[in-house]
Design a protein around this nucleic acid. Structure first.
Lengths: 177, 177
DNA sequence: GTCTATAGGTCGATAGAC
DNA sequence: GTCTATCGACCTATAGAC
């Protein structure tokens, strides 16, 4: 039982803090000390919930996987259609899910196989919905790559203002064929 | 003057080692000790050439910028056309230039402003050539995003075998309009 | 469940021999 | 130009009080 009365459990606050630090500064900055400070727990308190840094990574990925299943459901039943939903959420919306995704990508780049597998599984879910929608694997794959590009630019600080607008323009031309 | 008779100077061997470690394991792994070992120099020897780790980053980015100018020239005059050249080189070809690009992206993610600026400048060069070629900013931007997506997938270990083939298919449909 | 204190190791950087 | 030796700061993880 958590000692606080605010919404999140200590466990979730710690994972939130870990993700935030990974997103903002990479894993070099996301030390146990820094995570504890950000989550407003002592280092000892942190290590009660996650006995090692590795266990913390594992828990973060498990939570992301869970949230990913919800996201695919939302994408499938989005009123604006799955493509618009997918592209819109490819630019960072600041959601908890986005933050978790970026954090996982940071970890994956340091050759962490579990993080890579989690991301691959999420991407397969999105691709399936896109491929069902278009009935065209080539177009589905291309849209997914555009989403990856939007996402990469966004997380590297290279995003261009009008990217989304340009993409919508080009996609409307393709869909008009 | 270098003490060795092989092609690369000690300085270049150190930068190569730094990039390789950044690409393979991220900046947490790319320590001065590790870079020195990979470059087969002592840490003291390394710090003779680059008085600080920061100076090493700076030199790496300067070298990348120089190589980027050459790349844009090659793209502009490529016999297969700038688009094919751009997309083909967006999947990691294993070249020294690619390695440097990926290394710079790793550093940029840790909120290094210089690395971000270097990457932004390189990307502006590519975009200019694409926009000139198409005479259509929306399409040029979309192709650039596809390239970024290919690149992101590749460097995160999420690449799909047939991505490039699928993209070529879709682009040929657009260009046929 | 959460804390402090600290062990044990690694980091970037300096000093000085050759 | 390249080396070894070493410093202080910081990292992950453990031990034990409350």
């Amino acid at each position: 039982m958590p000692a606080r009365s605010d919404g999140a459990t200590t466990r979730d606050r710690i994972l939130d803090a870990f993700e935030t630090l990974l997103v903002d500064g990479g894993s070099r900055v996301a030390t146990l000390d820094a995570v504890a400070a950000q989550a407003e727990v002592s280092k000892g308190g942190l290590l009660y919930h996650f006995p090692s840094k590795d266990a913390m990574v594992e828990a973060m990925l498990a939570r992301l996987q869970e949230r990913g299943r919800t996201d695919v459901e939302k994408m499938r039943s989005a009123p604006e259609g799955p493509v618009a939903f997918y592209l819109n959420t490819s630019v960072d919306t600041g959601s908890d899910f986005d933050r978790g995704l970026i954090a996982a990508a940071r970890v994956a780049q340091e050759s962490d196989a579990r993080a890579r597998e989690t991301l691959a599984e999420l991407r397969n879910g999105w691709f399936e919905v896109l491929a069902e929608h278009y009935g065209d694997n080539a177009l589905a794959r291309t849209v997914q790559l555009i989403g990856d590009g939007l996402y990469f630019d966004d997380t590297t600080g290279l995003a261009h203002e009008r990217s989304l607008e340009h993409v919508r323009d080009v996609l409307s031309r393709i869909e008009a064929i």
